[in-house]
Design a protein around this nucleic acid. Structure first.
Length: 551
RNA sequence: GCCCCCAUCGUCUAGAGGCCUAGGACACCGGCUUUUCAAGCCGGCGACACGAGUUCGAAUCUCGUUGGGGGCGCCA
């Protein structure tokens, strides 16, 4: 047809969009755009057991949030659809039939247990990887049907040619995989659905994919794909296997990290008695106590909703590993994109800051490296800080809105744009949108729901025979007389007071701050008071004064 | 265990035989600024994993060692 470049991103809907997946998507997107080609999105939902409902919708949403729009795929259509593998089952069946008829594939009927036993035996005696032993006589069509009727699982295996395969990888060069490492792999599962290897080859060909950029964990799969392409008479796309992204400690960036963090927090809270078992069970989203215990024993993982609920309740930060997490934390999508582009790729000079269009222009597969990278959140945080400082107000406001939309329990959710803009201005120097919540959240909760940081009260108000409390009492009187409740008038009043008493500003500002926010952290005290308002400021001070008096 | 991939500051990386007494960025350390938290400004520390070769010359080429990673599924 034409030699236009076509790349694809093919996630399976088993959860949120992962950081590694996002980078794979980005690189495929960039390559297509750089070469004037098309970027295709395909959903690989062939594992009926692991697919998660509505995960695909969230996947698409996060991809769009990042700005990675696809030219063909779900929701946008295209000539080579459908783009869900679950809707292409007939196609796979036809191909399987073809291979079966030509003798390039055959039926096999071992159970999972039998295979497991064979694997164990192979590893013990042969000291090498397991290879499925090709039978001397292949089961006939009739035998296979009979066995299936008797309840045996029937799969189709591909007759792997007995020779070495060479992967011509655009990043790694020529990689030779010996014949002894390869064996007859399954192409159709017992449930009749295709395996990944089978579907990917058929779909890449059908969708005219010319370049496959994927994680290095797929390198050893490539001979399977090459053999299948050969058997089916398909062209071989250009392959490039990307280095893998890890956590700073070298562990895999997997959702397990979130389970680990929450599991630890739950354990602590239960031990300390700050939460009861029923409540935890309810929040976890587990169907019953057994399921919950299995999770606590590290046997299972919780769904994201349960993890998030528990994290919120226990006030622990979830490690950010999926795109969704960074969205919830208040990162700018273009910053995240910019950052992950630099994991495994570099422009060749000292430039680090790129917009998506700039990346499209600068990108090339030749400049992708071979070494695995660690995901450094500190550097990402710095990128975000710099970008936020440079962004115009409109952009920061829309980002803040998106952040609030994904943070249901933020007290800032219902504020109008004028107020939000003021908060953004007051939080100059913020690193993420969460910083606004962190610094200003207390200003907008109901007075009676204000949480107090006991350590702050002790340090600022009680220490030194309650000097801070005395100052606070006096200031309360002064504040009550102020009629012009603006930041500038408040500044004049408070600074004047401090000067008269020969006190450093901090000695006056901190007691007030703790009284009105419950903590030692807020924007400049004058602005903080103005935003809280006269009545609520006085009420909060009174509230704290009684609390301290009875303590 | 077998097969495959990789190897420059703590981290992301620049470097394709002499431009390297190895460059940039983040982090870190010190100082300044400061009503808190951030942010900001100035300065500093810091790496070619190791061992053999090849070469007039090696971070760059070869081999080995060590270390890290991936794969060995009816998961993708």
């Amino acid at each position: 047809m034409s030699d236009i470049v076509r790349t694809r991103f093919a996630p399976s809907p088993t959860g949120y969009l992962h950081i590694g997946g996002a980078r794979t998507a980005l690189f495929n997107y960039l390559l297509a755009k750089r070469l004037g080609g098309k970027f295709v999105l395909r959903i690989e939902d062939t594992d009926q057991a692991r697919n998660i409902e509505a995960a695909d919708a969230k996947l698409l949403d996060d991809l769009r949030w990042l700005g990675l729009e696809w030219d063909e795929g779900p929701q946008v259509g295209g000539e080579h659809g459908p783009y869900y593998q679950s809707q292409r089952l007939e196609l796979y069946k036809e191909h399987a039939r073809k291979l079966l008829d030509s003798g390039q594939a055959y039926y096999a009927m071992e159970t999972a247990e039998e295979l497991e036993a064979m694997r164990r035996e192979a590893r013990k005696s042969q000291q090498r990887g397991f290879r499925y032993p090709r039978p001397k006589h292949f089961p006939s069509e009739a035998e296979a049907r009979k066995a299936r009727d008797e309840g045996r699982p029937i799969v189709v295996r591909f007759k792997m040619p007995e020779r070495d395969f060479v992967v011509h990888d655009q990043i790694l060069g020529e990689v030779r995989i010996g014949a002894t490492e390869l064996s007859d792999f399954v192409i159709v599962k017992a449930d009749g659905w295709p395996t990944y290897h089978f579907a990917v080859v058929i779909d890449d060909a059908g969708m005219r994919i010319t370049h496959v950029l994927r994680g290095q964990e797929h390198l050893m799969n490539t001979p399977n794909h090459l053999a299948l392409q050969e058997a089916l008479g398909y062209p071989i796309p250009n392959y490039a296997h990307l280095p893998i992204i890890f956590n700073m400690d070298g562990s895999k960036m997997s959702k397990r990290e979130k389970d680990k963090a929450v599991r630890a927090a739950v354990g602590e809270a239960l031990k300390a008695g700050t939460i009861d078992e029923d409540r935890v069970l309810e929040l976890s989203g587990c169907t019953d106590a057994d399921a919950f215990q299995a999770w606590r024993k590290k046997k299972t993982q919780l769904e994201n909703a349960g993890l998030q609920a528990l994290a919120n309740e226990l006030r622990v930060a979830l490690p950010e590993i999926e795109i969704h997490d960074f969205r919830v934390s208040g990162y700018l999508p273009e910053v995240l994109l910019n950052f992950i582009a630099l994991l495994g790729w570099s422009p060749g000079d000292d430039r680090e800051k790129f917009t998506l269009p700039e990346l499209c222009e600068a990108f090339s597969v030749e400049r992708i490296g071979k070494t695995n990278a660690k995901f450094d959140r500190e550097k990402l945080l710095n990128f975000n800080t710099v970008a936020l400082a440079a962004a115009d107000m409109e952009h920061r406001l829309s980002g803040l809105r998106d952040y609030l939309n994904s943070n249901e329990n933020s007290s800032l959710r219902d504020l109008d744009n004028v107020t939000l803009q003021r908060l953004v201005e007051l939080c100059a120097g913020m690193r993420t949108f969460h910083d606004i919540d962190f610094k200003c959240g207390a200003m907008y909760v109901a007075d009676e729901q204000l949480q107090y940081d006991d350590a702050a009260i002790k340090k600022v108000l009680l220490k030194g025979d309650g000097a801070g409390t005395a100052v606070l009492k006096e200031m309360r009187g002064e504040l009550e007389t102020l009629t012009d409740w603006t930041a500038s008038a408040l500044e004049e009043l408070i600074r004047g007071f401090a000067e008269r008493r020969e006190l450093k500003l901090g000695k006056v500002a901190q007691p007030i701050r703790v009284a009105v926010t419950g903590s030692t952290i807020s924007p400049a005290i004058f602005d903080t008071l103005e935003m809280i308002g006269r009545e609520r400021t006085l009420r909060r001070i009174d509230r704290l004064l009684t609390r301290v008096a009875t303590a």
